[in-house]
Write a protein that binds this DNA or RNA. Structure first.
Length: 585
RNA sequence: GGGGCCGUAGCUCAACUUGGUUAGAGCGUCGGACUGUCGAUCCGAAGGUUGAGGGUUCGAGUCCCUUCGGCCUCGCCA
C-alpha cells in the first residue's frame, strides 16, 4: 500500500475516488460503533471512518489505534453527511471510508499532546523533538527556513556566485570568541579549532580568483548561550572581488528584499537607510539601533557642567557625561514606576537615574529644583520635550551611560507601548572605527582586524587608532544585528600595520596569519564581503524571539543537546589515543 | 565568573496568610458503555522518592544548606 495523497489533499472533487494516505494518528474517537481517526501528516489532517458494517475486522483493529501511531490507510473519499462537516479544516467536507489499514509503528503514549501542546517546556519538547516536529506550526518554521535558504541560494547562484565549502577542522585564533577544539590524533598535543567563521578562507578564495563566493555554513563559538545565540549557528557568507562597500550593500539589499517577499506583510523600502556607527552610538547608544520608534538619546553634558546638581557636575568634571531620554507622556508615571526604572538600570552597573517631569509651568519632581529656568529651557529644547514628558538621565562615563541607556530606551518603549510590532526597520550601520579602547585600556576591534580603513583615515591608525573609520557595514533589523561585513584589507603593509597596533610581534603574526600575509603578497584583489546570521533572519521573519525554535536540534543554555545528551564522557581508550588526560572530575 | 526565576503524576498547574492527618485538579493513560464524532461524551481505575542529598523540627512539598537540571540576565560573543 503506497501513499497516493497527502492528508490535506482529498476534497469534494475527489469524492468516489480511492486514496491512500499515510501519517500519524492525531486523534481518535471510538463510538463503540463508528471509529473516527484524524490522520495527520505535514500538510494537514483528514478524517478516516471505520464502520463495522463495512468490515468488522478493520473496525476492531482501528479501535485499538492510539495517538501518534504511524499508519497508512486506503479507502474511498466520501461526502460527509449533512451537518457533519467540519469547516475548521480544509478537508472538512469529506472523509475517507477505510477499506484497508496498515499499522507501521504503534506509539507509546506521547509525553505531550501534539495538537494541543499548551505551554510545554522547551526542555520536554527538545527531549522529544521527534514528536514536537510533527506539530504543524513547527513544520511551518522549518519549511520557511528552507524557503529562505533556497531563496538565498538561488539568488546568489543566479548572480554568478559559487558555493565553496571551507574546512571545519581548522586553525585556532586566540582573539575573538573562545574556540571549540578538536584534538589531532596524528599530531598528539595539537588541536584543530572549529571555525568561528570562514573569514580568512573566503579571503584566500578571492586571492585564488574565485571572484564571487557564497556559502551557507555552520560556525562555532564557545560562548554562553542566549535566546539569540547558539554555540553552533548558521551563516550566509558572501565575498566578492573588485567591488567596494556599496556593491556589497546593494546586492545584500536585493537578496534581503527577495527573502522578505516570503513574508508579504513585511515590506522593505529600498535603499535601506544608512547611519554611521558614530551617529548610532550618539543617538541610540548602541551599534544596533531599533528604529521602529524615536525617543533618541540626548546629551546635556554642556548644560550639566555648570548646573547646581553635584552628581551631574561631578560626572562631567570627571571626564564623563550626562545623557538621557525624554519619554513622551511619561509624566503620568507614578513615583513607583520611575523608581522601577532606576532599579532596572542597576543591572547595567549604573548607580541610578536622575529624572524630572515637564509640566505646563516648568520642571517638577526629582532633580527639578537644581536647574535654573534657562538651564531647564535648554534641556527641554534639546529633547524637544513637551509638557507631560518625563526626562530620565544617566550621569557617568560615556560607555556606562550608554550601556544602560540603550536597553533602557527599549525597556521604556515597551512599557509605554511605543513599538509597532508589525514594523520592520532594516538599516545599515556603517563606518565603525578600526579600534576600540577596552575597559582595561587595551585596543580591540569592533569587527575584525582584516577590516579596511578608509584611505584618508589610514594616517590616524598609529596616533589616534580609535578615530580611524573603516569601510564596514552592519545590517540591523529592529535593534538586532543580523550580520556585518566590510571591505577587507588587501594591502599587506596596512594589514601588517594593524597587527602591530594590536600588539602582535613579528613572530606572532607569522605564526597566526602567515598564510594570509603570503596571500596578500601574491596578487590579492580588492575584495569585500558580508556574513548574515541565518538563524536570526529566519526567526525575525517568522516573528519568533528564540532562535532555538528555528533550529532543528538546538542546545540548551549549558550547551547540552536534550535529544542525545551530548556532550558526554568518552572512553579512556579514546582519550589515550588522542594523548589527552582529563583533570579529575 | 556574578545576579535572578523555576523544578510537585506522562503534560500543564494547585496545595494559601503562618510547617500539621492519606499531596489535589484538568488533560493524557488503562478498563467499561455508546453508529456521526471532530479538544466526542458518560461511568470507573491506575498513576507521586514533591529533581537529588543533608539539616532544623514532635512533624517539611513548605524553612535552611549543598547539589543537579531548565530559563532569563550582566560579563562574554574578533
Amino acid at each position: 500500500m503506497k501513499r497516493t495523497h497527502y492528508c490535506e489533499r482529498p476534497r469534494e472533487s475527489d469524492i468516489g475516488n480511492t486514496v491512500t494516505v499515510s501519517g500519524w494518528v492525531a486523534n481518535w474517537r471510538d463510538h463503540g460503533g463508528l471509529v473516527f481517526i484524524d490522520l495527520r501528516d505535514r500538510t494537514g489532517i483528514v478524517q478516516v471512518v471505520f464502520n463495522p458494517e463495512d468490515s468488522a475486522e478493520l473496525h476492531e483493529r482501528a479501535g485499538r489505534l492510539r495517538s501518534e501511531s504511524c499508519i497508512t490507510v486506503s479507502g474511498v473519499v466520501s461526502k460527509r453527511p449533512d451537518g457533519m462537516q467540519n469547516p475548521a479544516i480544509p478537508t472538512g467536507m469529506v472523509e475517507i471510508k477505510a477499506g484497508e489499514l496498515l499499522v507501521h509503528n504503534e506509539s507509546a503514549p506521547p509525553p505531550f499532546d501534539v495538537d494541543n501542546p499548551g505551554e510545554v517546556s522547551l526542555e520536554t519538547r527538545l527531549s522529544y523533538r521527534f514528536i514536537d516536529l510533527r506539530r504543524p506550526e513547527i513544520f511551518r518554521i522549518f519549511h520557511m527556513r528552507h524557503r529562505i535558504l533556497q531563496t538565498f541560494r538561488r539568488f546568489f547562484d543566479e548572480k554568478g556566485f559559487i558555493e565553496v565549502e571551507t574546512p571545519f577542522l581548522t586553525k585556532s585564533t586566540p582573539e575573538g570568541a573562545r574556540d571549540f577544539l578538536v584534538p589531532g590524533r596524528l599530531t598528539p598535543g595539537s588541536f584543530y579549532a572549529l571555525p568561528q567563521s570562514p573569514q580568512l578562507f573566503k579571503q584566500i578564495l578571492m586571492v585564488g580568483g574565485l571572484d564571487k563566493y557564497f556559502q551557507i555554513v555552520k560556525c562555532f563559538r564557545d560562548e554562553d548561550v542566549r535566546a539569540s545565540r547558539q554555540p553552533e549557528f548558521t551563516q550566509l557568507d558572501i565575498e566578492m572581488s573588485f567591488v567596494d562597500e556599496n556593491d556589497i550593500m546593494d546586492i545584500m539589499e536585493k537578496a534581503m528584499s527577495l527573502v522578505f517577499e516570503l513574508a508579504p506583510e513585511k515590506k522593505l523600502s529600498l535603499p535601506l537607510p544608512r547611519l554611521t556607527y558614530g551617529d548610532a552610538m550618539e543617538r541610540y547608544g548602541t551599534d544596533a539601533p531599533d528604529l521602529r520608534f524615536s525617543m533618541e538619546i540626548g546629551d546635556i553634558s554642556d548644560i550639566a557642567a555648570g548646573c547646581g546638581f553635584r552628581v551631574f557636575k561631578n560626572a562631567v568634571e570627571g571626564g564623563g557625561c550626562v545623557r538621557g531620554i525624554c519619554v513622551p507622556g511619561g509624566a503620568a508615571m507614578s513615583r513607583g514606576e520611575i523608581d522601577g526604572f532606576i532599579e532596572w538600570v542597576k543591572q547595567f552597573d549604573l548607580p541610578g537615574l536622575a529624572w524630572f517631569k515637564v509640566e505646563d509651568d516648568g520642571p517638577a519632581g526629582g532633580v527639578a529644583k537644581f536647574f535654573s529656568e534657562g538651564e531647564f529651557n535648554s534641556i527641554a529644547e534639546r529633547f524637544n520635550a513637551k509638557p507631560g514628558s518625563l526626562l530620565l538621565f544617566a550621569a557617568d562615563m560615556r560607555h556606562k551611560t550608554d550601556r544602560a541607556l540603550a536597553p533602557l530606551r527599549l525597556h521604556v518603549a515597551e512599557k509605554m507601548d511605543m513599538i509597532p510590532s508589525d514594523k520592520f526597520e532594516l538599516c545599515w550601520v556603517v563606518d565603525a572605527p578600526a579600534f576600540e579602547r577596552a575597559e582595561d585600556g587595551r585596543l580591540t576591534f569592533p569587527h575584525h582586524p582584516f577590516t579596511a580603513p578608509y584611505e584618508e583615515d589610514i594616517g590616524l591608525l598609529e596616533e589616534r587608532p580609535t578615530e580611524a573609520r573603516t569601510k564596514s557595514y552592519d545590517l540591523v533589523l529592529n535593534g538586532v544585528e543580523l550580520g556585518g561585513g566590510s571591505v577587507r584589507i588587501s594591502d599587506p603593509e596596512v594589514q601588517m600595520q594593524v597587527f602591530r597596533i594590536l600588539g602582535y610581534t613579528q613572530d606572532e603574526i607569522e605564526d597566526r596569519f602567515g598564510f594570509l600575509m603570503r596571500a596578500l603578497n601574491h596578487g590579492a584583489p580588492p575584495h569585500a564581503g558580508i556574513a548574515l546570521g541565518l538563524d536570526r533572519v529566519v526567526s525575525k521573519l517568522l516573528g519568533i524571539d528564540d532562535i532555538r525554535e528555528t533550529i532543528a536540534f538546538p542546545k540548551t543554555q549549558r550547551g547540552i543537546c536534550m535529544l542525545t545528551g551530548a556532550p558526554t564522557r568518552v572512553e579512556e581508550k579514546q582519550l589515550k589515543e588522542l594523548g589527552i588526560a582529563t583533570s579529575g572530575q
